[in-house]
Design a protein around this nucleic acid. Structure first.
Length: 204
DNA sequence: AAACGCAACAACCGCAATTTG
DNA sequence: GCAAATTGCGGTTGTTGCGTT
């Protein structure tokens, strides 16, 4: 907290100078995941400094919540999810985080993007409610199954998109593990991460 | 093959709400 | 109770990739 007599008024969320912006690199992602896995995120403002990242806390928080969190569901929206979004939006308006809370694994940003890129257009074209007659679009229905890091699913149980998704996840975890080998504490973090992903999978 | 336009989505910004001392 | 710090949300912008000409 600022002491009396220090600069008044609202400070920017981060110093603009010397901080990196734009797309996140794999190395930055790893640092962030490793740090949060080990220490959690009690203070986003201090986190980047402690994690050795040249980013502002806001940027780290956004990256974690929208992409790096183990329970984030990547991939195309199902028809059911889409219908839920349409229904909730008519009820709640642009309360994206509220809408996201009804869709486990989906983020407000993702839903907002979907709305602006697909759903809004569909509704404008009057297609939203006539799903039976409308043709499937490029983001057509995909089986809504869990992320599985373990080798307990046979290939034929997974769609090609799921296989690709799973491969990407496993690659990421392998990279992460290589980094973790140097630090036992980080390994415990990985175990935690995996159990979280597994738990999320069981819930779905 | 190059140029252009558009769609998709990742990331940033500003403000509001909440928390803290 | 107040001021300042911090977090979270929603709007918007920037970048990238793909399709078309």
């Amino acid at each position: 907290m600022a002491r009396k007599g220090e600069r008044r008024g609202r400070q920017p969320c981060c110093e603009k100078e010397g901080l990196k912006r734009g797309a996140w690199t794999a190395a930055e992602d790893k640092k962030l995941v490793a740090y949060i896995t080990k220490h959690g995120h009690t203070n986003w403002r201090n986190l980047p400094k402690q994690a050795g990242l040249l980013r502002c806390g806001k940027s780290c928080r956004l990256r974690w919540i929208n992409y790096l969190r183990p329970d984030v569901k990547r991939g195309n929206f199902t028809k059911e999810e889409e219908d839920t979004i349409i229904s909730l939006h008519s009820e709640l308006g642009n309360k994206w985080s509220k809408i996201a809370s009804y869709l486990p694994g989906r983020t407000d940003n993702e839903i907002k993007n979907l709305w602006h890129t697909h759903i809004k257009k569909k509704i404008a074209q009057g297609e939203a409610s006539s799903s039976s007659s409308s043709k499937q679009e490029s983001y057509e229905i995909k089986p809504n199954q869990s992320i599985v890091l373990h080798e307990n699913n046979s290939a034929e149980e997974l769609s090609s998109s799921q296989m690709l998704w799973r491969e990407e996840l496993n690659e990421g975890v392998m990279d992460f593990m290589m980094m973790l080998e140097e630090d036992e504490g980080y390994y415990n973090g990985l175990v935690y991460l995996e159990s979280e992903i597994d738990l999320w999978g069981q819930m779905n």
